[in-house]
């Protein structure tokens, strides 16, 4: 094969001592594929899905704080110069925004949590 290559004017090739990266990858894939049964593939896919869903769920829940939920986009995308105590200006703006949200979203505790009235006059 090398001789043929030389005759054809192609630079001489060295005898391959070990498989190239693509061949190695192929070998690994074949080995992994022979190890994985259909059931294992499904199981691994399910594990992967559960991890993704849990991760996304956690991110979603952690972002739903009053400070971040529906925060104005202008505050989110601003550049972040810092103050003396290393608090970004945008953080300060967010704090002020969160503060005003807490005031407006006040719960009416007395209305929502008043003691339920029940009938206890069992006049038999």
């Amino acid at each position: 094969m090398i001789e043929k290559a030389v005759k054809a004017g192609i630079p001489e090739l060295e005898e391959p001592k070990s498989p190239g990266p693509s061949q190695k990858a192929e070998q690994v894939f074949v080995r992994v594929r022979s190890y994985l049964t259909k059931g294992k593939i499904i199981a691994l896919s399910v594990i992967f899905l559960i991890f993704i869903v849990s991760y996304l769920g956690l991110i979603l829940f952690s972002q739903q704080t009053p400070e971040n939920n529906n925060a104005p986009t202008t505050l989110k995308n601003e550049s972040i110069p810092t103050t003396e105590n290393n608090l970004p200006e945008t953080e300060l703006a967010k704090k002020i925004w969160g503060f005003s949200q807490k005031i407006t979203e006040r719960e009416d505790y007395m209305k929502n949590l008043s003691l339920p009235s029940v009938d206890l006059n069992l006049d038999f």
Binding site: T83, E84, N85, E89, L92, K95, K102
Partner: peptide
């Protein structure tokens, strides 16, 4: 809420002092 007000007041004051 009042504690938060004090914190924000100090932070804004720091900005002004600069």
């Amino acid at each position: 809420l009042l504690n938060e007000f004090s914190d924000i007041s100090s932070l804004v004051q720091n900005q002004i002092d600069k």
